[in-house]
Amino acid sequence: MDELFSLFINSVFIGNILLAYFLGMCSFIAVSKKIQTASGLGFAVIFVLAITTPLNWLIYHGLLAPGALSWMGLPDIDLSFLKYITFIAVIAALVQAVEMIIDKFSPVLYASLGVFLPLIAVNCAILGTSLFMVERNYTFIESIIFGTGSGTGWMLAIVSMAAIRKKLAYADVPKSLDGFGMTMIVAGLMAMTFMMFSGITL
């Protein structure tokens, strides 16, 4: 139980998927202008991650990993090279489903998220989390915790960035630095703050 809690906290803060591993930046920069859109997208990402990571775990360990097909009597087959294409298919399918759900229950949110919702499918953080899950050999439960943790960390970063950018609107940023350049520098400062968490032992 301790281990799982520690994994969760690590995924949110020390190994924050965005601020430490740089995944999920595209939408991060584009959507972090308004806090409401940012948190809406953040929740969607948490949801997608919490479901796709364990789902991909099942597919990987049940079908693709070396020796996974032994339940079918084919222990020598190694289909792990198919993981990229299978994971992304699962992610794209789930995002499509999430899109339809959001459209049904909150057309306002759907309208404000606009094109960014389908873009979750190509958000590197989603695919990246599944790939890390494979690389680090997590168990099923760990994959659920890791997925949720990564999503929470991503949302934390994007919402904080939106809040900071709102304040930045009143600052006198040089024209060439404004926009992307400034966001990067702020992200760097945020990354430094999150690194501070690595000194905490639980």
């Binding site: 740089f22 992307f180 350049g181 520098i185 760097g188 990354a191």
Partner: peptide
């Protein structure tokens, strides 16, 4: 990580 962010922010500023 922070180093990467700063460098890229400054480079883009330069380029722009």
């Amino acid at each position: 990580a922070p180093g990467a962010f700063f460098i890229i922010g400054l480079l883009v500023w330069l380029k722009n």
